[in-house]
Nucleic acid binder design. Sequence first.
DNA 1: GCCGCGCAGATTGTCAACAATTTGGATAAC
DNA 2: GTTATCCAAATTGTTGACAATCTGCGCGGC
Lengths: 223, 223
Amino acid sequence: MPRSARPTPARSDVTTRLREAITRGQLMPNERLVEADLAATYGVNRAHIRTALAMLDQEGLVVRERNRGARVRAITDAEALEIAETRLALETMVARQAAAKITDTDRKALRAIEADMRRAVKDADDMAFSRCNGALHREIQRIASNATATRILSTLRSHLVRLQYRVILLPGRPQSSLAEHQAIVAALCANDANAAEKAMRRHLTSFTTLLKQAIDAARHGGF
Amino acid sequence: MPRSARPTPARSDVTTRLREAITRGQLMPNERLVEADLAATYGVNRAHIRTALAMLDQEGLVVRERNRGARVRAITDAEALEIAETRLALETMVARQAAAKITDTDRKALRAIEADMRRAVKDADDMAFSRCNGALHREIQRIASNATATRILSTLRSHLVRLQYRVILLPGRPQSSLAEHQAIVAALCANDANAAEKAMRRHLTSFTTLLKQAIDAARHGGF
DNA sequence: GCCGCGCAGATTGTCAACAATTTGGATAAC
DNA sequence: GTTATCCAAATTGTTGACAATCTGCGCGGC
């Protein structure tokens, strides 16, 4: 039987679609998530929305109060830093593990992404740079093949994506970030776990510091 | 109105009860979780069970296959090590943060738990020791007040509890574990972030190593 | 004996209706 | 003008029924 007119048009993962809507900022923090509305929007039953909200609650992207419904969880500045630091701790571990497991194929993949990233910096293409950034980190996680850490990092990232742009758009950030990434790639390709961990720590420390500055600037300046 | 005959007898968190049933081993790995049965067991509606299963799925404690229901997720040996290593990375960070924030009240609490632990070792009371162990780690997390890391660690722990006993019951383990914990407490009380991180790393590295040995022994020996 | 076929039971997926609760505003009292 | 009270609309919580799907078993053909 051809599935031309499929009965469930990708309705299986409303959770994914809702998650993306939140991380992309289409649903603003503290915005109420009315089950009936969401059901209508995504063309599914209220039960689907209900379980999706339960999962996103567990994931920390929404909060639910009994009889009061769900809202997009607004993360505080302090929490953003917590997340950035937790990410740092995990990604340094992942970098170390990746250095121990890397193969020639992996090296090629890393260098390809690095080349893309260099190009993006030269062209001053922030969007492309951001994509390469994500791709590189994900590739390192794939090499480390630590499913547990990868899963946790992906949920942490979903909380950070919105803030990330503030940092990337800082003047001179792409250049220094590129250098940091190159150091990471070099260490990984050399099988040097210590150097890889150190390079990743330096990279993410710098990210965290800049994030902190961006947050402070937002608080005092134009909020 | 008095709530003598309360309408919802703690039915609100079937999720918690299910989670505990799994972590305590009352529900075995790969055991099928039939919604109707669970609903009857816990005296709630199938919808409750359904959302509980969705959350525990997100948490990684159960797996669900479409139209085939949910089962308790069986974690592999490799995964157990992944989890232990991830835990190590997070708890070393937490130890560092706790050292930076510790107050006199916190110091007292830590020393009290340490005393309990010493007593448990002297009495060779493994259960009490295990409780103190958990209490100490939780207290350190509370001091660090990194909600993000604490949340992640609590789910990681839920995966490790069953394996934990294998390690604790090894001969001589309580004694060496006690010494490791004392080093951690001392470093924390001295506000020494570097020493605290180092002590925690040593402690959890030793735990991870023993866990690895226990796994290998189980594989080759009597499993 | 072995393999495919199909049926019945068990189980999950979907849905709509109803009950319970909250929320905002209108109304009345002061 | 302010506050308290109550009602109606909106929203979530709960339940049961039905449809879709899977699973195991018996039956028949070879």
